[in-house]
Amino acid sequence: MFKILGDTGEHLVVELDGDEVTVPAGVSVAAALLYLDRIPTRHSVVNGLPRAPYCMMGVCFECLIEVDGVVDQRACQLQVRAGQRLRRQLATSKVESA
């Protein structure tokens, strides 16, 4: 979905949804997810709607993600680090409302 202009920079390896993936160093977690084209990055807790980074500046809270076991972190406000464990907050099944 997004690419890096003249991509010659450093990369590092993080864990995303249990798989090792290579991402550019020095970017936010949200930018890395867009680079990997791994959207949606979560399903909403209210109706399970698919969502992805929206404002990239910490305002909208759409990019919430689990980082190293802690849920609901703003992916746009965190830098990628080698070995980081990222997990998209995706619904595995939807509960039908009565």
């Binding site: 997004f2 890096i4 920079g9 680079y35 949606p40 980074p53 929206y54 990239m56 500046m57």
Partner: peptide, 25 residues
């Protein structure tokens, strides 16, 4: 407007400024 893949123009600029990232399509 809440769909994955809809973003703000400001977000697009932040991706350029902070990560040298531009749309691939």
């Amino acid at each position: 407007w809440d769909k994955a893949g809809v973003m703000t123009a400001g977000a697009a600029q932040i991706l350029m400024k902070s990560a040298a990232m531009v749309p691939s399509e």
